[in-house]
Every structure is written in structure tokens, then in C-alpha cells.
Design a protein around this nucleic acid. Structure first.
Lengths: 209, 209
DNA sequence: ACTCAGTTCAAACATGTGTTTAAAATAACG
DNA sequence: CGTTATTTTAAACACATGTTTGAACTGAGT
């Protein structure tokens, strides 16, 4: 276990829990049991560390996801919206195989990145990982051709919000659900529940303004 | 214009822009053109200031919203989900009459509160303003009786996420939309677009697990 | 054994944070 | 007016932040 990955692991966990602004380098290095200066030595700055934490996920998620979406569109018959969103499940849950709590951590980080340090994550995704987004838009377009690009733009951002938000607070929600409804629930249940929701949202009848 | 309201106004604006953690008391007091110590003198602590900023909105929003939802349920015929969510529009836009940028600021603050300082806002809402939530749940239950309480729980949190998230980044999104699609867009357009989305989401067919 | 790049380490740095203090200024009241 | 109470002010406090420094250590390669 190298110093670099010890830092990444600790940072990932703490960033997910307390956000980027809410986590100090000292907390990270002390949990990672490395020297404080190691972060700046190995990553240059806190900002670069954040990018590195995100990239570690996106580099395994992004190609898998693009592939699944493209594959879905190859069929003669257009996919349903539920199928489009279901295409996210395997790549997302695969993150759990790569790293413990991978899926949950990643989705929480996504949420943090959207609200912390405004717009940084949006820039990061659109510039560093544009393939995923475009293949996603294409898949939606194919599933629901009547949607204008403008409408798709808005609904995809709503969807991003729904998912990211649901996931960034999923731990708290799961706890409540377990207490109130008395059945074991985990991240994959939440994913299964959110799919019909966003599919219906994106597939909503078009509102005349 | 008292010192207290000068602080509240400045804090509201800055909290909405940069989040609670991301805004220092010095930024607030310097924009408000008051002394640094005034915050602790008038509010006691930063945390109490945050509560005060939120309460100023919630105290005018909450009764209006509860009333609208209860009224909607008084009818013999059950409301549609679109009607339920449309009931939010007037009370929300009314915040613009009370204060410039009121609607937008409030929705952004809601988003900040959810991701900053984990779970604080959820506690604040559920303990301090439970009427709104219960009348909301009732309205949804009446519009879509087949939904179990568990399903409602999840879908309402998804909806919270959608709205809060869409709004907390609405300024950025509106800018993109204006550039890319070349038509003027403002917060009320976003609200109008999000309603069919969340109504469809909450009204999605029930998934068998 | 010596060198030298790569890495770790304790310490300091400069700056920013929320909060407190005690004196000064202002307002309110008899 | 004079005497309270309220509010404002500048300064300091104690601590946390990201970053930098320069010396110590490590492990190959020659």
C-alpha cells in the first residue's frame, strides 16, 4: 500500500462524508497515517487531490458506461427510458467490486462536487469526460425522439440533481427507512427505486409554455 | 435599515452564492458594512445566523404553502400530482415580492443546507416546520392513493433533491441555456419546467422489487 | 562505500477562521 | 441634565487552514 493510495483512500472516504471544503488535509493525512506534507508532495495541492480522487472512479466508470449506452443504441428498436437508466446500474455497482463502498462513495462525491466549489465538477465532467455525456444524450434522444435538445438539457440536469442528491444523503435516508419501515435497505435498493422516478421524469409529457 | 437586517441581507446573498462553510463572517460584515463583532452580538454565533436567514424565508413561505396544499385537498375530487406541485409556485414566487431575488436565494440556500453541514437542514425543517411536510405528504397521498408510505418517503426525497439541486445551480444552468438555445430564461421558467418532471417522477408506475 | 534521486519528516509560515473583550459611542429614560 | 441601557468599535484571542522548507532517511545503481 503506497503512500499515494493511502492518501487517496482516506481522502475519498472523508470527502464523501464531510465534503471537500469540510475536510482538512490534516484529517486526511492523519487517517492515512502519513505525513502532512505528503499530500502536497504527491499531488501538488488539495485541488489536485480532489481531481485525483474523482479520476480514480471516473476512469473505470466512464468507459464501461459509454459502452453500455452505445450498445443499447445499436439495437434496431429504440430503448425505453427505463432501459437507458438501467444501463447505469452495472457500471455503478461495479465500483463496489473495485473498492469497498465504491458505489456509495462515488455518488456522494458527485453530490459534494456539485454543491461545494461551485461549478467545478460540472466543468470537470464536461471537459474531461465528454463521451459519457454525449452517449447519454444520444440514448435519451433515441428513446424519446420528441424531446427537443433544450428539453433534454433541462431534464438531464434535473436527473443529475435527483440522483446525486439522493445518493449524497443516501446513508441518512437508508437509516430512516430501516427504522421507519423495518426492512433492510442498501444503496442498490435506492438505485432501483430512483430509476423509475427519473425515467418517468425525463419521459414526462411536454409542457407547453 | 437596522444592523440586524443588513447582516441578514448580506448573509443571505453570500450563503446562497458560496454556501455556509464557504462564507466567512468577515465577508458578511464587510458587505453589510457593519462591524465584525455585530454578528455575534446580534445572533450569538454563525450557526444561529444561518438559522435566522432560513427562518426569515420559512416564516413567510411555510403558512402560505400549508394553506395552498390543505385547500387543494379540501375539494371532493382528488388533485392531480401536477396540481400538487403547482401549489408550490405561488408561495415560492411570492418570496420575490418580499425581497429581491427572494425565490432564487431561498431555493439555493435550501440546496446549500442539504449538502453543507450534513443533515442540519433536514433536522431544521422536520422539527421546526413539520406542518408543511405533513400537508405535502397528505396531498400526494390523495393524488396517488396507491403509493405506499414507504414509496412516498423515497419519492419525496428524490423530489426534494431534484428541486433543490436544480435551483442551487439554476444561475449557471440559466446562463448555459440562454447561450445555447438563445432565448431568455429565468427562475420561473425553471420552476415551470421542473413541475412536470417531478410530477411524473412521483407518479411513476410502482416498481416491483 | 559512495552517490544520488525519491521520499518522508518535523517544524514553521502566512493567512483565515469564529469568537471574546473592554472601551467608546449612541440612544433611552427619568 | 445625568444616568442608565443598548449598540458599535478596534483589537486581540486561540485555533485551524493549505502550503513551504530544509534536513533526515531510504533504497538502488555503480
Amino acid at each position: 500500500m503506497t503512500t499515494k493510495t493511502k492518501i487517496l483512500d482516506a481522502a475519498e472516504q472523508l470527502f464523501a462524508e464531510h465534503g471537500f471544503n469540510g475536510t482538512s488535509l490534516r484529517e486526511i493525512t492523519s487517517r492515512a497515517e502519513v505525513n502532512l506534507a505528503a499530500v502536497n508532495y504527491h499531488f501538488g495541492s488539495k485541488r489536485e487531490l480532489i481531481k485525483a480522487v474523482m479520476s480514480r472512479f471516473l476512469d473505470v466508470l466512464s468507459p464501461r458506461l459509454s459502452l453500455a449506452l452505445v450498445k443499447l443504441c445499436e439495437d434496431e428498436t429504440p430503448p425505453t427510458l427505463v432501459e437507458v437508466f438501467t444501463a447505469f446500474v452495472e457500471p455503478l455497482l461495479h465500483l463496489n467490486d473495485v473498492k469497498e463502498n465504491g458505489t456509495s462513495n462515488f455518488l456522494q462525491l458527485l453530490g459534494r462536487g456539485y454543491s461545494d466549489s461551485q461549478g467545478f465538477l460540472r466543468w470537470f465532467l464536461t471537459t474531461q469526460y465528454p463521451d459519457v455525456i454525449s452517449s447519454f444524450v444520444n440514448a435519451v434522444k433515441k428513446a424519446y425522439p420528441k424531446l427537443t435538445r433544450e428539453e433534454i438539457f433541462w431534464r438531464l440536469h434535473f436527473t443529475m440533481g435527483t440522483v446525486v442528491f439522493a445518493m449524497s444523503s443516501s446513508d441518512a435516508l437508508i437509516d430512516i427507512a430501516i427504522n421507519d419501515f423495518d426492512k433492510k435497505t442498501d444503496i442498490s435498493d435506492v438505485i432501483k427505486r430512483v430509476i423509475p422516478y427519473v425515467a418517468a421524469g425525463v419521459g414526462a409529457p411536454i409542457y407547453k409554455m
